[in-house]
């Protein structure tokens, strides 16, 4: 049969752009539509496109089962870790502004700046964590559902 040269070449060309776009969506989650979940879905879709175009074997060499499991745990740990860090610093769960610590106390513009930065970085870390989890879960689900047809 035909070798799907066109599909393979075009997928090759656009997959890096898709991956970068997904990272852009994650990073700009707090100032534009999107965020961790959407970016993670787009990243997972890029890997799925790679597997559809090149087959399961190539896909597994590029992103192994161990790596997706690892990413899965790292994402949850990042999310929970930031939340717990807020608790340790004396706030509620996911109360980002407490991450500023002693720099955020007082009333000057300096303290306000620190609070703002802490909030921003906190949201940023949460988005990255959610993105990693969603991407790895999507990839895992796709690999598993595509694989079940091997057995029969």
């Amino acid at each position: 049969m035909s070798e799907h040269i066109v599909i393979k070449r075009v997928s090759n060309f656009i997959i890096p752009f898709i991956q970068l776009f997904s990272l852009y969506v994650i990073a700009h989650g707090d100032i534009s539509p999107g965020g961790g979940f959407q970016g993670g879905v787009i990243f997972g879709a890029s890997i799925i496109l790679y597997v559809i175009a090149f087959g399961m074997k190539d896909g597994r060499t590029r992103i192994s089962e161990i790596l997706t499991d690892f990413m899965n745990s790292i994402g949850v740990l990042l999310f929970a870790g930031i939340g717990l860090a807020c608790v340790i610093m004396g706030g509620a769960y996911l109360e980002y502004t407490k991450l500023a610590g002693s720099a955020g106390e007082g009333h000057g513009s300096h303290a306000e700046h620190a609070l703002h930065l802490a909030g921003h970085l906190g949201i940023y870390g949460i988005e990255i964590g959610i993105g990693i989890v969603v991407a790895s879960v999507m990839i895992t689900i796709f690999f598993e559902t595509a694989n079940t047809q091997d057995d029969d």
Partner: peptide
């Protein structure tokens, strides 16, 4: 850097 790390042979 991350994207070119995982897919530099694609582009």
């Amino acid at each position: 850097l991350f994207v070119s790390f995982i897919s530099h042979d694609l582009l």
